[in-house]
Amino acid sequence: MLNLKDIYDELHSLGVVGSGRSFGDFANRSQSYLSSSLSRCRRPSAEVLLALIQNINDCLDATIEAAALSKSDEDRGEYEHGINGLKVLEARVWGEIWQRAGSRNGYSASNR
């Protein structure tokens, strides 16, 4: 199960968000969303996960464009690292959505 802290930590390590407050904005929620959800041990809703995917995709598109325009090999390498990290995170978030959808329909990984 993917939790908010894991998502935040990855986005923070990639430099996408600088604080819990900016994470709330990134998730299309209030700036206190992360701290409030963590203190209440809430997991992200499907709506939040979908908003995160949309914003990760927007960030991914911008990073790919910046990498293409970069003249420095060092900069391109850093962009590629970010692109790979964003793609992995996007896949993990989609996995969480599909896991939830499957469990609601009576399916699990063991049924497949």
Rank of each mutant, 00 (worst) to 15 (best):
M1Q: 08
N3K: 09
N3R: 12
N3V: 12
L4K: 09
L4R: 10
I7S: 14
Y8V: 01
D9H: 11
L11D: 07
H12L: 13
G15P: 13
G15K: 05
G18V: 10
G18W: 04
S19E: 06
G20C: 05
R21E: 00
S22T: 13
F23A: 08
F23T: 09
F26V: 01
F26H: 00
A27F: 00
N28F: 03
R29I: 06
S30D: 07
S30G: 15
Q31E: 11
Q31P: 11
L34C: 05
S35N: 15
S36P: 06
S37K: 04
S37G: 10
R40M: 07
R40A: 12
C41N: 13
C41Y: 14
R42S: 14
R42F: 13
R43M: 15
P44T: 13
S45F: 04
E47A: 06
V48M: 11
V48S: 01
V48D: 00
V48I: 04
L49T: 03
L49R: 00
L49E: 09
A51T: 04
L52F: 10
Q54G: 14
Q54E: 14
N55F: 00
I56A: 03
I56Q: 03
I56E: 07
N57E: 15
D58V: 01
T63E: 08
T63Q: 12
E65G: 08
E65F: 06
A66S: 08
A66E: 04
L69V: 01
S70P: 03
K71Q: 12
S72C: 05
D73N: 15
D73V: 08
E74H: 14
D75G: 00
R76G: 11
G77I: 03
G77D: 07
E78N: 15
Y79W: 11
Y79I: 05
E80V: 06
H81S: 06
G82L: 05
G82N: 07
I83S: 05
I83G: 00
N84R: 10
N84Y: 10
G85T: 01
L86D: 02
L86P: 00
K87G: 07
V88T: 13
E90H: 13
E90N: 12
V93I: 13
W94D: 02
E96P: 04
E96L: 01
E96Q: 12
I97N: 09
I97R: 09
Q99H: 10
Q99A: 13
A101N: 09
G102I: 06
G102W: 01
G102A: 07
S103C: 01
R104A: 06
R104T: 09
R104F: 07
R104H: 14
N105R: 10
G106F: 09
S108G: 10
S108H: 00
S108R: 08
S108I: 05
A109C: 14
S110V: 14
